[in-house]
Amino acid sequence: MPDRDVTLSTIQRELTAFARRARHKAAQIHPELSLVTYSMLDHLEATGGCRGTDLADHFLLDKSTVSRQTAVLERLGLIVREVDPEDRRGQILRPSQDGLRLLAEAHRQRRAIFEDRFTDWDDADLERFARYLQRYNAAG
Rank of each mutant, 00 (worst) to 15 (best):
E127A: 15
E74K: 15
S9P: 06
P85T: 02
E127P: 00
R135V: 05
F118M: 07
T47M: 07
S39Q: 13
L60H: 14
F114N: 03
R75E: 14
S34A: 03
L78A: 09
L33Q: 02
S39G: 13
F59I: 04
L35M: 09
A71S: 15
A26V: 04
R23I: 01
R13I: 02
A139P: 00
L78E: 08
T7L: 15
A104W: 06
T10F: 14
R20T: 04
D3V: 13
D3W: 09
I92Q: 07
D84I: 04
G90C: 10
K63C: 01
G49Y: 12
Q69F: 14
G99L: 06
L76G: 10
L15Q: 13
R68I: 05
R81M: 10
F118H: 10
T7N: 11
Y132T: 09
S64M: 08
L103D: 02
R101K: 14
I113P: 00
R4C: 03
E127D: 10
G140V: 01
L76Q: 15
D125P: 00
L41Y: 11
D57F: 05
D3G: 08
Q12N: 13
V72G: 04
E32C: 10
A130E: 12
L73K: 15
R101S: 09
R21K: 12
P95A: 10
L93D: 09
R135Y: 14
A17H: 06
L100T: 07
Q134K: 12
N137I: 11
R88P: 00
V80P: 01
R88M: 03
R68E: 08
T65H: 13
V83P: 02
Q91H: 14
D62A: 07
D116V: 05
L133Q: 13
G52L: 04
S9N: 13
D122P: 07
E45H: 10
M1N: 14
G49Q: 10
D57P: 05
M40G: 11
E86R: 02
H43R: 10
A26P: 02
S34H: 01
R75W: 04
E82A: 05
V83I: 04
A130P: 02
T10D: 13
A71G: 15
S96W: 13
T53L: 06
R20S: 03
R117L: 02
P2S: 14
V83N: 02
A19Y: 06
F118A: 08
L126I: 11
D120I: 06
D54E: 12
L93N: 07
R4W: 09
Y136W: 15
I113N: 01
W121Q: 10
D125Q: 14
G140D: 08
L126D: 00
R88C: 05
H58S: 06
T16L: 11
T53M: 01
E45T: 02
T53F: 08
D62L: 08
E14R: 13
R111L: 03
D87C: 03
D5C: 11
P85A: 05
V36P: 04
A56D: 02
Q134F: 11
L15K: 07
A124R: 15
L33V: 00
H43G: 05
E32M: 13
L93E: 11
T70C: 09
S34V: 00
E82S: 00
R68Y: 10
D123S: 11
